[in-house]
């Protein structure tokens, strides 16, 4: 085989490998976008469904979680992102205790944007609120822009 032919084959080979993996790269970006879209769509429709179904579960609105028994420093931190009790209708209702092993809470969309469902596994609401406050504080992201799906106690 003439060397020039071999050179052409080698250059073609390198090009094919790059082209192939670039196509894959694009395909993976498309898959990522598609999956993100599907997941966000599913999340929104799931949330809407919960809102419709769970009117009695308003007690878990973040405002309602604020309780006189809370320590003052925690209240101070939580106060950064939770509405004041007098501003939240749900806060007027007493917070109901959640089952310890796996608690589910769903809330309707509040005017200030706090909504969604949070699953608690072996975590009480106070601890959950503290954790959310810490995450909010550390990431500097407002709580109404953070989405918590679940909080699980580690062994």
């Amino acid at each position: 085989m003439p060397f020039t032919d071999a050179l052409i084959i080698a250059v073609s080979g390198v090009s094919v490998v790059f082209l192939m993996l670039c196509i894959l790269w694009l395909a993976m970006i498309l898959i990522d976008k598609l999956v993100s879209f599907i997941e966000s769509f599913e999340r929104v429709s799931e949330t809407n469904q919960k809102v419709v179904e769970s009117e009695p579960a308003k007690q878990f609105a973040f405002g309602a979680m604020r309780d006189e028994t809370w320590d003052r420093p925690i209240q101070k931190v939580i106060g950064i992102f939770t509405p004041k009790p007098d501003e939240t209708p749900a806060a007027k209702k007493p917070a109901e205790p959640k089952p310890a092993p796996a608690a589910t809470a769903a809330t309707p969309v509040q005017p200030d944007g706090y909504a969604g469902e949070l699953l608690l596994f072996d975590v009480d609401e106070k601890t959950a609120a503290c954790l959310m406050a810490i995450v909010c504080d550390q990431t500097k992201i407002p709580l109404n822009e953070l989405v918590f799906k679940s909080i699980r106690a580690l062994d």
């Binding site: 670039c22 894959l24 790269w25 990522d32």
Partner: peptide, 9 residues
Amino acid sequence: NPSSLLMGA
């Protein structure tokens, strides 16, 4: 990190 594919290539 799909850009890793370039390094693989």
